[in-house]
Amino acid sequence: MHRKISEKGSAAIAFCLALIIVAFTVITVYMFAAKSWWFPPAISAFGTQIDAQFHRTLVITGIVFVLAQLGLAWVIFRYRDQGRKVEFFEGNSTLEFVWTVATVVLFVGLGLYGEHAWAEAHFQGAAPGALQVEITGQQFAWNFRYAGPDGKWGQTKPELVSASSGNPLGLDPRDPAAKDDIVSPTMYVPEGREVEVLIRTQDVTHSFYVRELRLKQDAVPGMVIHMHFNATVPGEYEIACAELCGLGHYRMRSFLYVVSQADYDKWIRDQEAALQ
């Protein structure tokens, strides 16, 4: 049987490539275990649930990752050209069957497991008695509206919108329900209270995003989208825009304040007083 003599340096190349892949695998596993750059702590039971699913996924994909990369490194080193005969085979139906079924069970099972959290966020509405807050995005600011003592949203009109003269949502002054609507550039919610948000936008697509809530939802022109959350840890959290909305996308920022019920009531009273 005619064969070419293996190229010089083949062992060195095999060794180097296998070593790089092993080193890369070890460093990657270390980085994911060290968590130097990681999620901020979750501030809701929902967020904790998301984190648990993330860890499940991380463990499963991590095992597959390590096995596949180390397997690749192994065959590269082990089966470098040493002038031997190859082991001739063209496939193995049993193996194909086994790893197909195994990956179906693993991947689809993982997907099904993760659907609980999604269902909780989206299939169920907010709990009864939830505090309603309307969130409106515009280039490049967020506005948060509370219905006020009457519990009714006042009418808004596009032609009345004027961010420069202090009516960013275009509230209609002739509508009595609009008179007590509180519009704030930051968001206040009481801790441990179910909050239902109505997300909308005036101009282009934005995305309401609070890392600590593990929530992100696009604000889509022409739509009002409902989401709900229950934040249990008081504090100041940044709200960012997560959908490219124009040149000021990177600075379309606001704050979510999760405060005690007493502080929340005080904030609402101050806002109402400012409206008078």
């Binding site: 083949s10 590269i76 050209d81 082991e87 193995n92 990956t103 991947f107």
Partner: peptide, 18 residues
């Protein structure tokens, strides 16, 4: 995943020219 397994299967028992 099947493709990845089969690539590893192709390399298994080979005489790799780098």
């Amino acid at each position: 995943a099947i493709k990845t397994f089969n690539w590893l299967g192709t390399l298994w028992g080979a005489q790799i020219r780098f």
